[in-house]
C-alpha cells in the first residue's frame, strides 16, 4: 500500500480560525502540488455548507474533538491524510448535528482523488481513533514535532489496517 501520510504535508498550526488554518494549509499543499489552485476556495465553501466536526467526547471523555475537512476529488491530486495539530482549539460545526458547535483540537484533512478506490480514508481515521487506547491518543495529541507525528501515524495505521 502507498503511504497515507507525507511528512511535508503534516502541520502544527498556531492559527485561531478555520479560515486562517485552511488558507495556511491550502497554500502549502498547493506548493507541494497535492491540490489545485481552486482547492482552498472549495474547501472553505464546503466546510461552511457541510461541516466536518466530529464529537469524540461521546466516544471517550478523554479524547479531543477532531474535524475531517475535505472537498471534491477534482480539486485534489493525491490520496492522502493531512494531519494538522491545532495549538489553539478552533470552533467547527458538528458533521452529524450541524447546529452544534465543537471545539476542535486536531484536523485530519482528507485528500481523496479516488473515491471509488478500496481504501476509505475516513473509515481508517475513525478506526484509528476508536481502536487506539485513549491514553496513547492523548500522548499523540501532545506531539508537536511533524516528524514524530508522521512516524506515529504511519505506524499506527499499519497496525490497524
Amino acid at each position: 500500500m502507498t503511504h497515507l501520510f507525507n511528512e511535508q504535508a503534516t502541520f502544527v498550526s498556531d492559527k485561531k480560525t478555520q479560515l486562517e488554518v485552511f488558507k495556511e494549509v491550502s497554500q502549502k499543499l498547493l506548493d507541494l502540488d497535492l491540490v489545485t489552485q481552486d482547492f482552498e476556495k472549495n474547501l472553505i465553501d464546503r466546510e461552511k455548507n457541510y461541516p466536518t466536526g466530529m464529537d469524540l467526547e461521546i466516544v471517550n471523555p478523554l479524547l479531543k474533538n477532531i474535524a475531517i475537512p475535505h472537498t471534491e476529488p477534482e480539486f485534489v491530486k493525491a490520496k492522502l491524510i493531512v494531519p494538522i495539530k491545532l495549538n489553539q482549539p478552533i470552533t467547527f460545526s458538528n458533521m452529524i448535528k450541524p447546529d452544534e458547535l465543537l471545539e476542535v483540537s486536531y484536523l485530519f484533512m482528507i485528500l481523496n482523488n479516488d473515491p471509488e478506490g478500496q481504501a476509505n480514508l475516513l473509515a481508517m481515521i475513525m478506526e484509528f481513533l476508536t481502536s487506539t487506547s485513549p491514553e496513547t491518543l492523548t500522548d499523540f495529541f501532545t506531539l508537536t514535532d511533524t516528524k514524530e507525528i508522521n512516524q506515529f501515524l504511519e505506524h499506527q495505521f499499519k497496525i490497524n489496517n
Binding site: R46, N49, Y50, T52, I68, H70, T71, E72, P73, M95, I110, N112, P115, E116, N120, L121, L122
Partner: peptide, 8 residues
C-alpha cells in the same frame, strides 16, 4: 457534501 468520503 463532497460525495467522496462520508457517503461512500
Amino acid at each position: 457534501g463532497a460525495g467522496v468520503n462520508s457517503s461512500h
